[in-house]
């Protein structure tokens, strides 16, 4: 395990060192961004809509019973932008895109494509890892913004149409506007950027270190997804703790 962590840190450092090449790799970055968007956007929309709806459904009746139903928009919005959208979008992308990255790089390792790149004096980290890590680190925060908006709509819809809640959309969005400042959104974006970075590096590392044919590729994909999910959740606590002192309007 410690060897794996060490290798991942080295891969991350090598990727950072390759950053000056990012401009040259812009076509591959754009292709990856397109692939990530294509694979995730619809699912992100569905997930976010239902997450927002469930938040309203769970907390709405309690708030209404206590006479603070008008604060529902605030609660749903904060929960979405600071916690649920960053975590859920990162998990979604790690599952759908990260697994595909690990499988693709794993297959390239097994079928000697990466060795072939080395023999052509082409750095596989610059050629394969850099575009993927940059693309995933840009795509996830973008998906989080999208997820926030869809989640808020889902929450507002349920709040307005559920008989036990019955908070009008206007009240919901007024509470949302008053309660959420740009800092809360930025907080979620920072978290999602780091989640994506970690998922990207983990999935690429698993792919590059694949051994043992098709079975090895399957093992790598499983490890890539499981490790990414575990690290996203661990990192979520650490980043939330680190960003807590900045909560009172630092980003606003």
């Amino acid at each position: 395990m410690f060897r794996n962590i060490g290798e991942m840190v080295l891969l991350f450092v090598a990727t950072v060192k390759a950053l000056p090449w990012a401009c040259r790799e812009r076509r591959k970055i754009a292709e990856q961004l397109f692939d990530i968007g294509n694979a995730s956007l619809f699912m992100a929309c569905v997930l976010s809509l239902f997450i927002g709806g469930v938040l309203s459904l769970q907390s709405g009746p309690v708030l209404v019973e206590n006479g603070i139903g008008s604060a529902l928009g605030n609660l749903v919005a904060i929960a979405m932008c600071k916690e649920l959208a960053p975590v859920m979008m990162s998990i979604l992308v790690a599952g759908r895109v990260g697994s595909a990255m690990a499988a693709e790089l794993g297959s390239m390792s097994v079928y000697q494509e990466i060795d072939a790149l080395r023999t052509l004096a082409i750095n596989p980290i610059r050629f394969l890892v850099l575009p993927r890590v940059i693309a995933i680190s840009i795509a996830v925060p973008c998906l989080v913004v999208f997820s926030n908006l869809v989640g808020w709509l889902g929450g507002a819809f349920v709040a307005a149409h559920n008989d036990r809640i019955a908070v009008p959309a206007e009240t919901f969005f007024t509470s949302l506007r008053e309660g959420v400042d740009p800092g809360d959104v930025v907080n979620g974006l920072i978290k999602s950027f780091f989640f994506a970075l970690c998922a990207g590096v983990i999935c690429c590392h698993q792919g590059l270190t694949t051994q043992g044919g098709p079975r090895g590729i399957g093992r790598s994909v499983t490890k890539a997804v499981v490790n990414s999910l575990a690290l996203i959740l661990i990192l979520d606590y650490i980043l939330t703790r680190v960003l807590l002192p900045f909560d009172n309007g630092f980003f606003a």
Partner: peptide, 19 residues
Amino acid sequence: IDQTRHRLAMVFQGGGLLN
């Protein structure tokens, strides 16, 4: 090795072509 590699080439068993 990267300097030397510009003078060497390898043909892999499966070809090693990028699919």
